[in-house]
Amino acid sequence: MNCERIREIIITDYADGAVTDADARLIKEHLSSCRECRKFEALVQSSTVAPFQRLEREDVPPGIWDAIREQLPEPAPGRAFSLRAAVSRLFFVPRPALLALSSVSICVAAALLIYFHFSPPGASGGYNGTVQDEKMQYMAYIMGFSDTMSGRNQGEYSYIEEMFFE
């Protein structure tokens, strides 16, 4: 790199500590052998960077808040304590999180809809017909609907049933 290019970097990225380590090494090497660029670098630091960095912040003058406050619209009566505001504060979800949550919910809902809409009963991956029949029979047995499984003939009642019906 020639002196002109080196000085361009010195007055911007190098002065602001924004160069890569490799570039910083390159410039330091150049500075160690180039007197004019060394003088330039010292001048940039002392005249264009350091005085501004040394400057302290001034305190904000009093009274600005009151002047701002006067220009703000008056809040509606009771608005700050409204039920709606309280509820929304209670269930406040940060915007990015809300966005992520909504996206996931929509995707899940869409996936379920597609899955059930396009999968006929008994199709692979859906409910198995045989299993379903067995379940139905078992349920019927539990609930006492199946005479064949209970081994009773029609017209026969159990002891408890007789208590009620006869």
């Binding site: 912040r57 001034e58 406050r69 809040p75 608005r79 700050a80 505001a85």
Partner: peptide, 23 residues
């Protein structure tokens, strides 16, 4: 909260940022 009219919340924002805004 500040955008919903909570003045104290807006005051907090003012306290935090007025230094650099003024300077």
């Amino acid at each position: 909260r500040a955008s919903n009219g909570d003045l104290q919340a807006f005051r907090d924002i003012y306290d935090a940022y007025s230094g650099f805004v003024f300077n």
